[in-house]
Amino acid sequence: METERKDVQPTEAQKKAQRRRSIALALCLVAFVVIFYVATLVKFGPAVMDRAL
C-alpha cells in the first residue's frame, strides 16, 4: 500500500529568507559578469573586437 505523501510547507519566515537569498545570489552573479566584462575591456581594450572572421 502506498503511504500518503507529506509535502513540507515552508513557513513565511523560511519563504522570505529563501527569496532574499535568491535575490542576493542573483545580484552577485550579475556583479561577477559585469566585473569580468569590464576587466576584459580594460585588459584588451578595443583589441577585444579585433578578430579575423
Binding site: 503511504t3 505523501r5 507529506k6 513540507v8 513557513t11 523560511q14 529568507a17 529563501q18 532574499r20 537569498r21
Partner: peptide
C-alpha cells in the same frame, strides 16, 4: 519519501538564513 523520513527523525530543515548571515 526521504524528506518525510527525515521529518520523522526531526532532521529536515529549511534554512532561514538571510544574506546577512552569509556576509
Amino acid at each position: 519519501m526521504a524528506l518525510v523520513h527525515n521529518i520523522e527523525n526531526g532532521e529536515a530543515r529549511i534554512s532561514e538564513a538571510m544574506p546577512g548571515d552569509y556576509f
